[in-house]
Amino acid sequence: MSPHAYLVDDDEAIRDSLGWLLESRGVACLSYPSAEDFLAAWNPSLTGCVVLDIRMDGMSGPELFATLCEHGSKLPVIFLTGHGDVPMAVAALKQGAFDFVEKPCNDNELVNRVIEALKLDETQRLAASGADTVNALTDRLTTRERQVMDLILAGKLNKVIADELQISMRTVEVHRANLFEKMGVRTAVELAQLLAGKR
């Protein structure tokens, strides 16, 4: 199944407005009126992220989060909180939640966080799919791109890499952009995280 934002909130108006907002920015989403409904639909193959209200009738957001963690879910979770719920949201962050956003929230800020959570989920799944996937990605690199990658992972700046490989800064930048694209990452940190499971 393609990545989705899963909206779990017992307020229909919020589900509708957030759903419309996310889809207007190109984020596919599915809505659930309760934690129990989402739990019934959840399975380990779901990809994306969960936007979860803290206070709901029946099972609360933190209870659902704890249950998902027990089931081994790696879906990033963004909590929607009222002002008085911030301590609860901070506690959830310490247990591994991705973020929390206070209601009423800045719409674009929330969507930006959802998009970041979707990217994190994608990166985690790539890394978790094992060394075979990482090997398949690195196999696509040219010899020069591998050299540049090793020096990036060693923490060296473009200028230093250019000096060591005796090529121009511009050439380093081109190799860097190409290898990031082939590896499916945006930063050196993401590259290091992706390769951490392999090394």
Rank of each mutant, 00 (worst) to 15 (best):
H83I: 04
H83F: 15
H83E: 11
H83G: 06
H83L: 13
G84Q: 08
G84H: 04
G84S: 13
G84C: 00
D85M: 06
V86M: 03
V86R: 01
V86T: 09
V86D: 00
V86H: 01
P87W: 05
M88L: 10
M88Q: 03
M88V: 00
M88T: 01
M88P: 01
M88E: 07
A89D: 11
A89E: 04
A89W: 05
A91K: 13
A91P: 08
A91R: 11
A91I: 04
A91F: 02
A92I: 03
A92G: 11
A92M: 14
L93T: 05
L93V: 03
L93K: 11
K94P: 10
K94W: 14
K94S: 15
K94C: 15
Q95P: 10
Q95F: 10
Q95V: 11
Q95A: 15
Q95W: 11
Q95D: 14
A97G: 10
A97Y: 10
A97E: 12
A97D: 11
F98N: 14
F98G: 12
F98M: 13
D99K: 09
D99S: 13
D99N: 14
D99V: 04
D99C: 07
D99T: 03
F100Y: 15
F100M: 08
F100N: 04
F100V: 02
V101M: 06
V101D: 03
V101L: 09
V101T: 12
V101F: 08
V101N: 09
E102C: 04
E102Y: 00
E102A: 05
K103Q: 12
K103M: 11
K103I: 07
P104Q: 01
P104K: 03
C105M: 15
C105K: 07
C105E: 12
N106F: 09
N106S: 12
N106G: 09
D107S: 05
D107P: 10
N108E: 10
N108F: 02
N108A: 04
N108P: 00
N108Y: 02
E109C: 01
L110D: 11
V111T: 12
V111M: 01
N112M: 07
N112P: 01
R113M: 09
R113F: 07
R113S: 12
